[in-house]
Design a protein around this nucleic acid. Structure first.
Length: 496
RNA sequence: GGUCCUGUGGCCGAGUGGCUAGGCUCAGCUCUGCAAAAGCUGCUACAGCGGUUCGAAUCCGCUCGGGACCUCCA
């Protein structure tokens, strides 16, 4: 089996073949650090973290570039240029870079909470002004851009004449040229479909750089092209981002890079679908965002409780990344319970001592188990079908739990299968899905205290002193620790 | 208005034409001093109407509903 991924460019699943065997280059559109990340942002970061982890698991050495957009852009092309970052900075009375730093830190914190692996390179737009200017100059030299009043625009019409502008996003160039939408201040551009490579900065702009065309700031799309080219080369394997970036952002990236580097920049375009609330995309424009800090604290009118980062991560993994995913507090609650059950089964499985050389006593269960486990790889190779892998795990969880409770004999499955199941659960849940234990019970002293309490409760139960045994259990429950009686008189515990 | 996507059981969600994903909820049962946890059982759905086919949730057409992009957006 080989990994197949859905390529937005060709609109079909394709076998992934990297340009250089053994190496993979991927670029993911990172955040604009002019505000706090919300739940919607979590999806691409977790989706492409999953991809990065899986490619690594498959043996690729991956260069994972995820940018930070810290240079502000005009709010809306054609209207009065207004730098997002500097606008907010005025409101908050902060230096632009102070604001950028604040939200960058917050973003990094959120990524850590989600257990996302750091990208191998995390370039900033402001750190690559020189490269962006260089690229713009090349485009002008090639005759595909023109300068007006200190701003530079990409000539879409000319590009479209010889290239397939619009292929990625399914746009028809004539429609773009004939937009019914009425936009003001288009007079600088030769054509309304043209987009800015460089914008002249109005005097009040705080963020500004010198360029051959005067002081200004880079256009929205050029940073990704410049940084991707610099770190991944003129053509690289995978470019990821949210579906809402298909047009115009990624379409424009292709155009710019193609003119500069004389080849299409990306082999596989991957796009995650949106997270919605009541069917509507979560986004700034809709005023329906739930910030990640609010998710984790529960401090939001739409939330009935706080949801941990791993619950959110699991929630996202339970659906396919190209399907829309509708948020509601109750579906998060369902994910929380499901994850808890699965994670406990995982813990039980890992603690099992496997006796070597056991032959399977239950041939039917043995073959079913092997099939379910083998499908993990198959499903992941099929465009990262995490939901199906999890479904198989949930089919195996009762088997694991039943073995622990003695409802299924320990020798029902062969040693080889047990070892394989242990390995696959660990590799998939922890290494590939990036889930981790959120209970802070690593404290050895807490464990010893709990062992003491369990011992006391066992003794109380043995002499039928239920008042004492219930007191221990109930008071622990009150502080969020659940004691569970097990078959055979043993007890285990778990934090809420 | 243009382009594209989508409509699955109480809820969330997988679904490559035939073998009825999975999770959560709910009901019953088992285990248990009680509870929790765990296990077992039950709940057979694919917006509507046509068509193709031996056979369609899956393909085609129409109708209705929802959404995305076309403007900053993950």
């Amino acid at each position: 089996m080989a990994l197949k991924i859905y390529n937005s460019y060709t609109r079909q699943k394709e076998e992934f073949v990297s340009i250089t065997p053994g190496l993979a280059g991927m670029y993911v559109c990172g955040p604009t650090v002019s505000g706090e990340s919300h739940l919607g942002h979590a999806r691409p970061y977790i989706t492409f973290d999953l991809l990065y982890r899986y490619l690594t698991h498959l043996g690729y050495k991956v260069r994972y570039v995820r940018n930070i957009t810290d240079a502000g852009h005009f709010e809306e092309e054609g209207r009065e240029a207004e730098d997002k970052v500097s606008k907010k900075a005025l409101l908050e009375k902060l230096e632009p870079m102070e604001l950028v730093q604040k939200y960058t830190n917050l973003y990094h914190w959120a990524m850590k909470q989600f257990n996302c692996v750091d990208p191998t390179i995390e370039p900033t737009a402001t750190g690559h002004i020189v490269e962006q200017i260089g690229m713009i100059e090349k485009i002008i030299e090639a005759g595909y851009a023109y300068e007006v009043n200190g701003s530079v625009y990409f000539d879409v019409k000319k590009y479209a004449a010889g290239h397939d502008y619009g292929k990625l996003s399914g746009r028809v160039i004539d429609d773009l040229l004939e937009t019914t939408r009425e936009l003001e201040g288009q007079e600088e551009k030769r054509d309304r479909a043209d987009f800015a490579l460089w914008k002249s900065a109005a005097p009040e702009h705080i963020m500004r750089w010198k360029s051959p065309w005067g002081e200004g700031f880079p256009g929205w799309h050029i940073e990704c092209s410049a940084m991707a080219t610099k770190y991944l080369g003129p053509q690289f394997d995978i470019h990821g981002g949210g579906m809402d970036l298909l047009f115009p952002h990624h379409e424009s990236e292709i155009a710019q890079s193609t003119i500069c580097n004389h080849e299409s920049p990306v082999r596989y375009w991957m796009h995650n679908n949106m997270i919605t609330i009541n069917g509507k995309k979560m986004g700034k424009s809709y005023n329906n965002v739930i910030k990640l800090t609010e998710m984790f604290s529960g401090d939001h009118p739409l939330l009935t409780q706080a949801f941990s980062p791993m619950t959110v991560r699991f929630f996202i993994l339970q659906s396919h990344y190209r399907s829309p995913l509708d948020f509601s507090s109750s579906s998060l609650e369902a994910s929380e319970k499901a994850l808890k059950r699965l994670w406990e089964a995982h813990g039980i499985l890992q603690k099992m001592n496997i006796t070597e050389g056991i032959e399977a006593a239950d041939a039917e269960l043995e073959s079913k188990t092997i099939k379910l486990i083998n499908e993990f790889d198959e499903f992941m190779d099929d465009d990262l079908s995490t939901a199906k892998v999890l479904a198989n795990m949930f089919e195996l969880a009762p088997v694991i739990n039943s073995m622990k409770d003695g409802l299924i004999a320990m020798n029902a499955l062969s040693s080889n299968t047990m070892v394989m199941m242990q390995r696959y659960f660990r590799v998939y849940l922890e290494d590939i899905f990036g889930l981790k234990d959120e209970q802070n019970n690593n404290d050895g002293k807490l464990n010893e205290v709990m062992n003491l309490l369990i011992d006391m409760r066992k003794q109380a139960k043995a002499r039928k002193d239920f008042a004492t045994s219930d007191k221990i259990r109930n008071q622990l429950a009150a502080i969020g620790i659940n004691l569970k009686d097990e078959k055979g008189g043993e007890m285990s515990w778990a934090m809420e």
